[in-house]
C-alpha cells in the first residue's frame, strides 16, 4: 500500500508540530539577522495531488527566490526557503546595506546572490537542527542551491523522489510574517519541508508513533 494511504490525519498533526518547531527556530534566526520582529503562522500540512500543485503554489506569473537544501541522513528529503523575489531583494538590501541589490535585474550581483544563499542556509539550517533535536534523527543539510524562477518549476525538484511512489506530495508549509509600519501582517516567505516517501515512517517512528495501527 502506498505511504499516502497509510498516513492518517493524526500523523499529519505530528508533522505539523514538526514544522512548527522547525520554523519557530528559523523565524528566531531571521529575526536576529534582521533585528526585527518576525512571526510565523501555524503550519499547514497538506496532501496535494501533483496535478493541482500549480494552483496550490499559486500565481503563474509569480517570481520567487528559493534556496533549496537536500536533507541527507536518517530521514532524507528536500527543504525550500521560498520568498517573493521583491521581498528577497529587500531583505538582502537590509542585510548587506547595499540598496542596489535587485534579483530581477539582468546584471548579476554576486554579492547579493551569495548573501541570499547564506541567509537561506542559516534559516534552513536552524529549521533542520530543531527538527533533528526534536526527533533525535541524524540529519545533515547539503550545501544550499539558489534559484530565482517560477514557484512550480522550482518546487518540482523537491517532488522527484515522491513522484516515483505516488501521485501527491505532503507539504509541510510554514509561513513567516513581518508586521509593517501599519501593523499589517505581510507574508515574507515559506518553508517547505518535503520528506522522501520512506522518511515519513522513520520520522513518525522516531517520535514513538507507528503508522500501522
Amino acid at each position: 500500500m502506498s505511504y499516502l494511504e497509510r498516513i492518517k490525519p493524526q500523523h499529519l498533526d505530528i508533522l505539523k508540530e514538526l514544522g512548527n518547531i522547525g520554523a519557530g527556530h528559523a523565524a528566531t534566526a531571521l529575526s536576529r539577522l534582521l533585528n526585527k520582529a518576525i512571526d510565523m503562522t501555524v503550519p499547514s500540512v497538506q496532501v496535494v495531488p501533483f496535478s493541482e500543485i500549480s494552483s496550490y503554489v499559486g500565481g503563474e506569473d509569480a517570481v520567487v527566490a528559493a534556496v533549496m537544501l537536500r536533507i541527507e541522513g536518517d530521514a532524507p528529503g528536500n527543504m525550500f526557503f521560498m520568498l517573493p523575489v521583491t521581498e528577497a531583494s529587500r531583505l538582502i538590501q537590509l542585510l548587506t546595506g547595499d540598496s542596489t541589490v535587485d534579483f530581477l535585474s539582468e546584471e548579476v550581483n554576486d554579492m547579493g546572490f551569495s548573501a541570499l544563499n547564506e541567509m537561506g542556509n542559516i534559516l534552513a539550517g536552524s529549521y533542520l537542527a530543531a527538527f533533528s533535536d526534536f526527533t533525535s534523527l541524524n540529519l545533515q543539510p547539503s550545501p544550499p542551491a539558489l534559484a530565482i524562477d517560477m514557484p512550480m518549476a522550482i518546487l518540482s525538484y523537491g517532488l522527484l523522489e515522491l513522484s516515483m511512489v505516488g501521485e501527491a506530495a505532503i507539504f509541510i508549509d510554514t509561513q513567516i510574517n513581518e508586521k509593517d509600519a501599519l501593523q499589517t501582517e505581510q507574508t515574507k516567505g515559506h518553508f517547505f519541508l518535503l520528506p522522501d516517501p520512506d522518511s515519513f515512517e522513520i520520522i513518525l517512528n522516531s517520535l514513538g508513533v507507528t503508522i500501522d495501527e
Binding site: S54, I154, S156, Y157
Partner: peptide, 25 residues
C-alpha cells in the same frame, strides 16, 4: 485548456492548451 503536472490533455481550435512551471519536467 490546462495541463497539470504529470497530466495530459487535448485541444482543437479555437482553444489553446497550456502548462505552467516546467522546470526539470
Amino acid at each position: 485548456i490546462k495541463v497539470g503536472m504529470a497530466d495530459l490533455n487535448y485541444a482543437t481550435p479555437p482553444n489553446t492548451i497550456r502548462t505552467t512551471g516546467l522546470g526539470s519536467c
